[in-house]
Amino acid sequence: MTILMSLDPASLLRSMPGACAQGLIWGLMALGVYITYRLLDFADLTVDGSLATGGAVAVMLIRGGMNPWLALIFAFIAGMAAGLVTGLLHTALGIPGILAGILTQISLYSINLNIMGCSNQAVSVDKYNLVVSLRYISDSPISKIRVFATSILFCLAVVMILYWYFGTEQGHAIRATGCNPQMARAQGINTDFHTVLALMISNGLVGLSGGLYAQYQGAADVNMGRGAIVIGLAAVIIGEVVFGKLCAGKYFAFAYTMLSVIAGAIIYYIVMNLVLWLKLPSDDLKLFSAIVVALFLAIPYLKAKYGRKEARA
């Protein structure tokens, strides 16, 4: 009771804009996870490393005097390079997908330290004209609007580009590769090439998200991507569970699905803020998110198992 009394609804409300902004930025990463996990059917663990790579590249370039917007393009390219490595480890060298991702992720830890020269590099919003920043959120309403407008615009632009891309011949080839590689090869699709391509696009988005997030929190950290894959999966699954029925059968179903993934990321951060607000120890956050993701991943399996038994009876 005393714990409940000590909770301050106003502080929960104050944390919401930050949660939404974080959700929007991580939503871009979740879209990358969606491309590999759902479209390509490839559990890509590179993202834990490529997110930090994107952040490290963006921060170091901004510190070196580059325009923060332009730095994001390089964060995207750095992410693509990470995806290329995972893709080649898998397709050219025959290493199982999960292991290929882990190898790249581990090697990126050293690479990220090398990019930054130490484990943490700051970009102060006072010195640089950052694209988004935590500080804008607590500032005046106009700054607040700026953060949201920028991140929403980013998300919408990425959704539109991806909607177009996965409707092209090349996008179709990637989807066929993920859905049924045997059919894809029988239809003359180079499945190795399109697997690498999809991994590059996915990790490019993760790198971009890392670049934005580093600007948002004012620093890149070598550990900023730890557990990113879990957050990405959580966003994808929450999006599907909450909005799946709304998206199905619609004319722009794919665009709605991508928007629901971003919404899933926002919901994830709102829930995480709620958990913190309930004064649960923040040390347990990762445990909590892993349990949530495990539960949601298990539901379809258990449903199928239980459903079959019922049908048999």
Binding site: G167, E169, Q170, H172, A184, Q187, G188
Partner: peptide, 25 residues
């Protein structure tokens, strides 16, 4: 490809042996 539509499947087959670029599928 079961997650793709009938027309998408046929369009993929219609491009068999050709390059797959960035024109509409």
């Amino acid at each position: 490809a079961t997650t793709m539509s009938i027309e998408e499947n046929m369009a993929i087959a219609a491009r068999r042996g050709e390059g797959r670029g960035l024109s509409w599928g």
